[in-house]
Amino acid sequence: MPVTKTDTSSESLSHAELELLQPGKTPGVPGAPIGSIAFQLNPKELTMTKSASWKAEKQKKASSAPPATYQGPEAQKLSVEMFFDDTRGGGGESVVARVEKLFSACVPTEESRQGERPSAPWVRFKWGVLAGFVGYVKSVSAKYTLFSPTGTPLRAVCTVALEEIAEEPGKQNPTSGGLRPRRMHTIREGDSLAAIAYREYGNPALWRQVAEVNGIDDPMRLAPGSPVFLPAAEELAGRPARDVVRAEVARVIR
């Protein structure tokens, strides 16, 4: 599929959002999308943190630094500010309603309440080519900075902290024969496999592997609302045969 370079000056403005997902039954694999929380104004900056766990070994003799053993990666974290302003009116959602929607992301979903393990919705930060990890809202801090004469909040700054949800253990080795989906993307109007491959892997040429993994025979006809599973890049490089991949994707869906 040929990819042409576009003039970024003519591209439409992309709005950041927090995609809300139904909690998944498999670690790291979310359920269906259940909504989103849009940024009224795109963020000026965001902070992403990734760290590793190390354990220092005790030793009898003193030294400048004791030996340490790598314990594994820790959950990735993202912190971003959301600005809400209703000073011009406009008839949209009020500042309070927007803040309450953020707070509700810390409350169990109705569907999860009916099961054995209630859970708040899973979330994913999305903005243009940025598609963050699947995680949960760790905390929301709202600061109202402007009020109307009647005491109605007109402006707020919210600090939102997200934390990654760990994937299923035992599926980390791409040579073990199991496909470990990193995340699921829901097709939207205007999507193409090349664009999805570029956003996820930084290489639009991987659209063929994405199509093969998902059993897509005609990449020019993508149905909006349908899911596309996106495995880790190293798994695409050493992917198993097509029938094995399809069987594994079917297992994940169940």
Rank of each mutant, 00 (worst) to 15 (best):
S79G: 14
R117L: 15
E116M: 10
G135T: 01
K138N: 11
M82L: 13
R124V: 09
C106L: 15
F83Q: 09
F83C: 09
G115W: 02
E74H: 04
Q76A: 15
T109L: 07
T69K: 11
A97K: 06
A75T: 12
A131I: 10
A68V: 11
L102E: 10
K138V: 03
E74S: 12
G92C: 02
R117T: 14
T109Y: 04
V134W: 07
A75G: 06
L102T: 02
G72K: 08
R113P: 12
P67A: 13
E81N: 14
F103D: 12
K101P: 10
A65P: 01
E93M: 10
W127Y: 11
G132T: 08
A131K: 15
P66V: 05
V99G: 00
S139N: 09
G72W: 09
C106G: 13
R124M: 14
D85Y: 00
F133L: 06
P121S: 01
L102R: 05
F133W: 00
F103Q: 12
R124I: 09
R88H: 08
V96E: 13
R113S: 06
A131L: 11
E111M: 09
A131S: 15
A120R: 13
P66Y: 12
Y136M: 12
A75Y: 03
V96Y: 07
Q71Y: 04
T69S: 13
E110R: 10
V129W: 15
E93D: 10
C106N: 11
D85V: 08
E81Q: 14
F84K: 01
R113F: 12
L78P: 13
P73Y: 04
P121H: 00
E93T: 06
L130A: 07
S112W: 07
G91K: 03
S79M: 13
V137K: 06
V123R: 00
G115Q: 05
E93G: 06
S104P: 09
T87S: 04
M82Q: 04
G135N: 00
K77R: 14
V134C: 13
T109E: 04
G128N: 03
P108C: 06
A97R: 06
V134I: 15
R88G: 14
S104Y: 10
A120K: 12
E93F: 05
P118W: 03
C106K: 15
V134L: 14
D85K: 00
G90K: 06
Q114V: 11
P67I: 09
